[in-house]
Design a protein around this nucleic acid. Structure first.
Lengths: 152, 152
DNA sequence: TGCATAATGTAGCATAAGCTACATTATGCA
DNA sequence: TGCATAATGTAGCTTATGCTACATTATGCA
């Protein structure tokens, strides 16, 4: 028992006249997260196609550090969203939209890494942190990173 | 039909002698992601306790931008992991471990925001991007941000 | 003090991403 | 050319995070 009565500290609980930006920001972050995997995949596919002429399921699985089953399912999703083309038992290729997204991601990734490196961060850490950070870098922040790089 | 034979471009497909860092980095990023929600919750709970003396489910839901049902389930998980204490129909409070994590997150968040602001990024964008970026900032990178801030 | 209502809890659904185990297809070499 | 094997595909489980709809409990005011 012992359910001590809760004291509602001055009723003005919820929505303080739309001043809740926290929720808005976190929602945005969740939205970005939903795109992270898409971005990682198109980038990996672009790399593999550049390196080997095609992106196979096993190679993607190895590069992304997941099982081939996971790759399979995700590729099906990417096909629905129009980022890749894929036929049974064939390699995977990017559509025009996929190539465009991959190019933007690659560029952004390189800028983030270069920026972190310019702060004196080790290559290993810069690469690792960039993998997570890059998906949350807005155009404005990316521009600021670019500008900071130019100043050196 | 028309299944054109796939041409395996030089068999050296998979594991090139452990040189696959990409997979390692992405795995790390996935691991970080699993902690993001925990971090967001303990931070929000700490804020609410500081502001109002307690963190209620509805207030958390409002602040985090999710339904009270989602808060409920996540709080149950946080209780299992030892970050919060929670009794039926009572408010939520942090354990010592939860407070420690919240303090570290708050500090890291503030450093990330201050650093972005120091690059000339607007307050709104800095806050929004920080929400996503902060979870992927390693101790080394955080130290670099701090050092860069001192130089101004 | 009783009851309308706010807050909390529960049931059950959806999506996404991970996995193992097993089935199927395609390659390429003997 | 046939067949062992590598690659791909499928079935089905798990965990995590969302949700709506409905049930239950606790507050606080008339």
């Amino acid at each position: 028992m012992t359910p001590k009565p809760r004291k509602p500290p001055a009723r003005p609980s919820q929505t303080r006249a739309g001043k809740n930006r926290q929720a808005e920001y976190l929602s945005q972050t969740r939205r970005e997260h939903a795109n992270e995997i898409t971005e990682d995949y198109v980038e990996a596919i672009a790399d593999l196609v550049a390196e080997r002429g095609e992106a196979r399921v096993v190679d993607l699985a190895e590069r992304l550090g997941v099982s081939h089953v996971t790759v399979n399912r995700t590729v099906a999703r990417l096909q629905k969203s129009g980022h890749v083309t894929s036929e049974p038992y064939r390699a995977i290729f990017l559509t025009a939209a996929g190539r465009k997204l991959a190019a933007a991601c690659k560029s952004r990734h390189e800028i983030v890494v270069a920026f972190l490196r310019s702060l004196g961060i080790s290559e290993r850490t810069a690469e690792m942190d960039a993998e997570g950070i890059e998906h949350h870098v807005s155009p404005e922040t990316l521009a600021a990173f670019r500008a900071a790089l130019r100043k050196r």
